[in-house]
């Protein structure tokens, strides 16, 4: 039977390895890897040494320390989703201005082409 510590550590190593692979293949922007790599490291560390979690939980007055990673994970997910929406808003603004600029350039190009036809 595989110890749960090895299972957690293994999951963390797989996640970290996957992230590194995605960065190396230019599939994941390095900026986002800065978020995911620490997450993978934390999973590995907690998996290998769950006593750290118990110590932190006891210090914070949590009666059932194993719930602490779940709470932290939930908060981090909310923060991550909010950051994604902020980024999506920024990209939407950029995209909209790009669409507007292209449309104006296309209309200018069409106008010049029509004028050349008239001259010819």
């Amino acid at each position: 039977m595989i110890s749960y510590q090895w299972a957690s550590a293994g999951i963390g190593i797989i996640i970290a390895g996957t992230i590194l692979l995605l960065v190396m293949r230019d599939r994941l922007h390095s900026r986002y890897a800065l978020w995911w790599l620490p997450v993978a490291v934390i999973i590995c560390v907690l998996g290998i040494s769950p006593d750290i979690n118990n110590a932190i939980g006891s210090t914070l007055g949590i009666s059932y320390p194993p719930v602490l990673p779940l709470i932290v994970a939930s908060v981090l997910m909310i923060v991550k989703i909010l950051l994604m929406d902020l980024n999506a808003s920024r990209m939407e603004r950029v995209l909209q201005r790009l669409v507007q600029r292209i449309a104006i350039l296309e209309s200018d190009s069409d106008e010049r082409r029509d004028r050349r036809r008239v001259v010819d």
């Binding site: 909209q96 669409v99 507007q100 292209i102 449309a103 104006i104 296309e106 209309s107 106008e111």
Partner: peptide
């Protein structure tokens, strides 16, 4: 009229801003 055609729909305000 001079016509500017948007490639994707931006809505009334997006069109006015264009």
């Amino acid at each position: 009229a001079h016509v500017i055609s948007l490639a994707v729909r931006l809505g009334a305000w997006g069109s006015v801003q264009t």
